[in-house]
Design a protein around this nucleic acid. Structure first.
Lengths: 136, 136
DNA sequence: TAATTTTTGCAACATAATTGCATTTATTAT
DNA sequence: ATAATAAATGCAATTATGTTGCAAAAATTA
């Protein structure tokens, strides 16, 4: 996985902040919130830059959002299948109540949901919280 | 379903705002956001009162939160099984992309999720978004 | 290397959420 | 029913979060 490659593949100009933020995602065990990026970074980017970078990455299909119950959006790297406009991050997200790490459980299967008459699905998010393997 | 009963059962003193907000949930088709309550109410409660009331209701297990992808917490009435501390709102939530109504799909089944070794579940949220029966 | 395009950072603004404290309201005990 | 106590409310102040316009800086293209 090459940072530069990702940017170029998506026709994004290669800038310092984009490289650094992508790296943070790459090194992160799980998902990151805006606040994580803002605090963590030794070099500090402007808040606005972070917002805009995350948004760019999301529309390009480089990262995807994970809704959480505590009103903070999390972002995580997408796997290959995502593309502009429509995400295909069909996996379960697990948030550890103890260490707060968010995992993308790519290999955990789940059966498709059968909605009532008249309802059509566009996106499905499955978020499980509990205790992760490290915190037991 | 008796508003007063719910409050008394939970050792909450019976106040105007609590009664009114509970009633709003009762009449609402689906879930409500803080903003809905703030705007909707003919009598206007202080923002702070609404925050505090929602929080109280949630810790008591009267309402539960629904995570959404756009960073706005929704709240909906719990069914009987919820209790202080631990919610048992095991149902799928559906958010309409068009009219924004949120439905608790109590009767839509889903198979339980088998987590990897070392992970234990505490809470599971399944949020489906798309178009609801009214908006087709 | 110059011209052009894009991104960044700052300032200003808008909204959302939290905290402390005095006042008001509800509950309990008399 | 009323006084004493406890709890909830509303206001003000503060902090956090998110957005927009625009000039300066950096990246890309010619």
């Amino acid at each position: 996985m090459d940072i530069l490659d990702i940017l170029k593949r998506n026709n994004l100009s290669v800038t310092d902040s984009r490289k650094k933020i992508l790296e943070m995602f790459h090194h992160a065990d799980g998902a990151l919130a805006h606040a994580d990026i803002e605090k963590n970074s030794s070099e500090n980017f402007d808040r606005v830059t972070i917002y805009r970078t995350l948004q760019t990455f999301e529309t390009k299909g480089i990262i995807h959002t994970i809704p959480t119950a505590d009103n903070s959006i999390l972002y995580a790297l997408c796997k290959e299948e995502c593309s502009q406009g429509h995400h295909r991050d069909n996996h379960i997200h697990f948030i550890c109540d103890s260490c707060n790490t968010t995992y993308c459980l790519d290999h955990v299967p789940y059966s498709s949901i059968h909605l009532p008459e008249g309802f059509t699905e566009n996106r499905t998010d499955i978020i499980v919280s509990g205790i992760c393997h490290k915190c037991h």
